[in-house]
Structures are given as C-alpha cells and as structure tokens.
Design a protein around this nucleic acid. Structure first.
Length: 113
DNA sequence: CCCTTGACCAAAC
DNA sequence: GGTTTGGCCAAGG
C-alpha cells in the first residue's frame, strides 16, 4: 500500500504504532521476539519491526529492550548489537543473560492480546 | 518509481 | 556449537 490520490500515505506509521503499542505491554522480567510482534500484526515483516523500534524516540516509555531475537540472543539496542546497556536493563529486571543469550522458554511473553 | 538498507528468521552447510 | 544464504517487508534515498 502506498499513496492515495492526494499523494498522502495511507497506512504508513500504523505499522510502527502497532509495534510500539505491543511493546509497551511486555511486563517487566519478560521478553518477546521480533517475530512474535510481527505475527500479531499478521505480517512477516520481522525486519520492519526492528526498523520501527529503531525509530523509537522514547526508550523509557517504550521498553524496547524487552524485544529479543527468536534464537534467544538479545539482538540490538540503539543500533548496537549485543548492547551492554540492553543486557544491563534486562538483568536489572530479573532476566538472566548468559553470553549474550537468554532462555526463551522461561522468559518469553506471548499474551499480547 | 526503482534501489538499497536494516535492532530479523529459518534452513543449510 | 558457529557462520552463510536467501528471503522477508517497511522506510528512506
């Protein structure tokens, strides 16, 4: 979907908005994956989810550090892979991170309604 | 418009 | 266990 006859974007930003909304719902001490967020949006735009979070201007309000890769590695934060800051935040919330990875079986939060 | 770039994923080496 | 490869799709140039 691109533009309408007035050359205005139709559904741009909606994707990002939804991503941020879902991210806000992740409880402290839990995480979710880029894939699960995309799935909730009925999309396979895994990468676009990352793009949306990168665009996030309010990292405190939007806890984007709780979004990780589906293989259990923490992924990136503020454009930096395996960000020390991201790991720190997660640990502070009670998530065990070992060697840049965590146990999804234990921490994955799926009920994003 | 077309082309490139990613905070990714799954499968295959 | 790890690295590479092709695919994915929204955004920006």
């Amino acid at each position: 979907m691109k533009t309408n006859k007035y050359n205005l974007s139709i559904s741009s930003n909606m994707f990002q908005e939804k991503v941020l909304e879902l991210t806000k719902k992740i409880p402290k001490g839990k995480v979710t994956t880029y894939k699960e967020i995309a799935k909730k949006l009925k999309s396979k735009a895994y990468r676009a989810v990352g793009t949306a979070l990168r665009n996030n201007k309010t990292p405190i309000i939007i806890p984007c550090h709780r979004v990780v890769n589906s293989n259990g590695s923490v992924g990136s934060y503020k454009g930096v892979e395996n960000s020390k800051e991201k790991i720190k935040l997660l640990r502070k919330e009670g998530v065990k991170v070992v060697n840049g990875k965590l146990d999804l079986e234990e921490y994955l939060f799926l009920d994003l309604s």
